[in-house]
Amino acid sequence: MTVLIAGIGNVFLGDDGFGPAVAQALVERGDLPDHVRVVDYGIRGLHLAYDLVDGVEALILVDALPGDAAPGTVTVLEVSTGDLPGGAGLDAHAMDPATVLATLHRLGGTLPRTYVVGCRPTNLDEDLGLSPAVAAAVPEAVAAVDVLLGKLTTGGT
């Protein structure tokens, strides 16, 4: 099974750099199987959309995730077509992850089995580097990715 792990986020907006930080940690660890590709997409959502059109069997998005949980809380979600907004256009300047995934059909692709490993941010202001709570969550997110890879490899749910 081909798996794409996509780090999403703007490293110039504090904790929005969570996805790229997790992608970097996974690459630096260097022990992923050949069928798993890790890419730091940053804010290049359209690039991600076209990579998905080329075909992968599973996608793990890693990104800062809004919510009511305490900052630094890691959450894993499974995403289906029904979770995506309708009527997505091709505006390269508004390609948040949900819009990227919703755009796939218009580009000729289909949504692969998709998970989000998200972390509740503390700070999304212009700032380089993660807050202490979000930086401390990076190893937990890496472990969550490992659990998902195990499920995908064994065919579990």
Rank of each mutant, 00 (worst) to 15 (best):
G30H: 10
T154P: 06
L46C: 03
G156V: 09
D96V: 14
S80H: 12
V145E: 05
L149K: 06
R29F: 04
V3Q: 07
Y50H: 14
A141V: 08
A98E: 07
R29L: 05
V142M: 08
L52Q: 01
D91W: 02
G45C: 05
A88Q: 10
T99Y: 00
P121T: 00
T153H: 15
L84W: 07
L77M: 13
D96E: 12
T157H: 12
P132S: 14
L128T: 04
I60A: 01
P121A: 07
V27E: 15
R120D: 00
L84H: 05
P33C: 01
V74N: 03
L13C: 12
M1D: 08
T110Q: 14
H105Q: 12
N123K: 02
N10P: 02
G19R: 09
H35M: 04
D91F: 09
V117W: 01
L149V: 09
L46T: 07
F18D: 05
Y50K: 13
V145C: 12
L4H: 08
R120Q: 10
P112Y: 02
A6V: 10
F12I: 15
P139N: 06
R106A: 15
A25M: 07
G108L: 03
D125L: 14
V145T: 07
K151H: 13
D15G: 00
A64R: 00
D91L: 12
F18V: 04
C119D: 02
L61P: 04
L13E: 08
V3E: 11
R120G: 00
V79S: 08
T157A: 11
N10L: 08
E126F: 15
T81F: 05
R29H: 05
G155P: 10
C119H: 02
R37E: 15
D54V: 04
L77D: 11
A21W: 04
V74R: 01
P112A: 07
L152P: 09
D31K: 10
D96L: 10
P66R: 14
D51I: 01
L107A: 06
P97E: 07
L104G: 09
D127T: 10
A92H: 14
G67L: 01
V100Y: 02
G9R: 01
P139V: 10
D51T: 04
Y115V: 01
D51W: 06
A49V: 07
R106Q: 13
V76S: 05
D54M: 14
L128F: 15
G42C: 00
V145D: 00
T153R: 15
P121V: 02
V134W: 06
L148I: 13
A25I: 03
V38E: 14
G19A: 12
T103Y: 10
G129F: 09
D127C: 15
L77Q: 14
L48Y: 06
D54Q: 15
L48R: 03
L90W: 13
E140Q: 12
P132M: 09
A6K: 04
V74D: 01
